[in-house]
Structure formats: C-alpha cells, structure tokens
Write a protein that binds this DNA or RNA. Structure first.
Lengths: 147, 147
DNA sequence: GTAAATGCAAACCGTTTGCTGTACA
DNA sequence: TGTACAGCAAACGGTTTGCATTTAC
C-alpha cells in the first residue's frame, strides 16, 4: 500500500484533490496486484460505490499514470491494462498465447541490455517495456520443447 | 522486396488469392520501410488506386500478418503500426518521447535474455517485443546526460 | 466560496462486419 | 464459373469530452 501521506503530497503538490473515487481506484489496483483493464476496475469500483462512472475511472487512471502511481501496459490487445507501480521494481511480462496467463519477471539485466543497445545511438532511456509471449507449461502444444 | 514467387505460394497454398489490392498494400509497406499505421497505408494506397477502401486495408493487413509477411507493433499509442517483415531479422524499437522518431536495433542478445528469463518458469517463447522509449540526442532535455 | 472533479450522455476514432457486387483462379 | 475478395456504409468497443452538478480545500 502506498503511504497516504506521500499520496496526498503527490496530489496536492499540483493543486489537485484527493477524492473518494481516486482513493477507491488506487485501492483496487493495489489490492488486486494484477493487471486490470479499465472495465474491470470500473466493475470493482461499482461494487463499492454504485454511483461512480466509467469516465471517472478513465480520468482517474490517466491522472494516476500522470503522477506516476500507475503504469499502463498494452499486452498486444486492443485495450490497456493498469497496475499500481511497485516503487523502483521495474519488471517485465510474459503472456501465454493460449490461456492469457501473465507471468512477471524482475531482472536488472534487461535495463542493462537496454542501456547498452542505446549507447551507440546516444539515446537516453526512460522506459523499458519487454513483453514476451508464447506458451506456458500447461498450454504448450504437445510434443514441443522449450526451443 | 519479397520474391513474388514465394508470395504467390504463401497465398495460394491456402486457396486464397493475390489481388491487386494485396500487392499494393504490401508494396507500400516494403518501399516505405517505416512503421506505418493503417490510415497512412490507406492514404498512400488511395494515391494509386482511388477506389480502394479502408476496410480492405485493414483486412489485408490482418491477412498479411496471418501469413507472416507483416508485423504489427503498438508503440504505446492507441493504434497499431505495421511493417513488412525482414525475414529472420528480429529487431526491437526505441521511440523518442518528444519527436516520435523510431530507432531500430538488432541484437541476438535480446532473444538470449528472453529465453533465459523463461527457463525457470518453463515457458516457451514465441515472440519477443522490446520497446524502449526516452529521448534522442536532438530532443534530450538540456543538461541531462545518458544516465 | 471557488476551482477541481464527478456523473451522465453523447461524441470520437480506430477497427470490424454485413451485404452486394466484382474479379481471380 | 464458383468462390474469395472488394467496396461501401453501418456497427462496434474502448476511450474521451461537454456540460451541469457536486465536493474538496
């Protein structure tokens, strides 16, 4: 859970407000610890506040992203997935092409490699997205092996 | 340019047809050698065939992707970008957050690292998407250095 | 009290689909 | 000549926006 104090500071620093709805959305992302899409966040929010609207969810997700409390991922689908940032724990994802399961990795080697790739072109890396897809053990086509 | 022969085989093998429009879309992707979105492909196609429709462009892009002649990338934007595959040359992208410029990398190390990450969870890797973003030399905020 | 944020509904925009007519094999 | 494909327009689904109302500060 994010410290309430820090959260308040982050928000108020820009003359913006901590509303019931913003707390709710962030709470849902934090306790879920999954990669929820906006629709799912909306559904879960509705369970606790039946008056919240989908527009508020989208605006809040954009807002939380803007102040750095939430990350968005695409996963090759046509809609975004959101998660509360786990501070200074950059991580990467694998999606199973059959069952959709998502596995997370943490590996400093990825950032290291990214920096190395950028060196020769003098590029400054800010974000690194590594997204693998394939088959998990359960879904692997019979007879194939990790190639 | 893809060999016409191979192209025909790839298409006909499934009882499907090589139409003027499919040739046109593939031509545009190959000569552009950029990462075009569907709208841009459509505009360029219209210049040479004023009767082609956007639906045909989308259907053709999906078709070319299906038979493996075209790749789609998201680049964190809300719409897809397409490119003709350069056979067995997997590559990765960097997007400048200010000017939008795209830089490509080729590095076998990425696939190597991906496989290593997947080993312990017994995952079979099929696709690897590495997408970096940050600032190019021209756009780098003044006074900052490659951290 | 007064901006900022919400809720609702309508708009938006990239993409897909249904249908009828066209053209590749 | 039969069937895959094209063109058009309408539908779709995720996301954004305009506006009146509410609420945090």
């Amino acid at each position: 859970m994010a410290q309430k104090r820090e959260l308040l500071d982050a928000i108020r620093s820009q003359g913006r407000r901590l509303t019931r709805q913003r707390q709710l959305v962030l709470e849902i992302l934090e306790e879920g610890a999954e990669h929820l899409d906006a629709e799912t966040v909306f559904e879960r929010a509705r369970e606790r506040d039946e008056r919240i609207g989908i527009a508020t969810v989208y605006r809040t997700l954009a807002f939380l992203k803007e102040i750095g409390l939430v990350d968005e991922h695409q996963f090759g689908e046509d809609h975004g997935h959101f998660e509360a940032v786990q501070s200074d724990r950059p991580h990467y994802h694998f999606t199973c092409m059959k069952c959709g399961k998502v596995v997370e990795f943490q590996s400093p080697q990825v950032m290291k490699l990214a920096r190395k790739l950028c060196e020769s072109d003098d590029l400054q890396v800010v974000e690194v997205h590594l997204h693998l897809s394939g088959y998990c053990v359960q879904c692997r086509p019979a007879g194939t092996d990790c190639r």
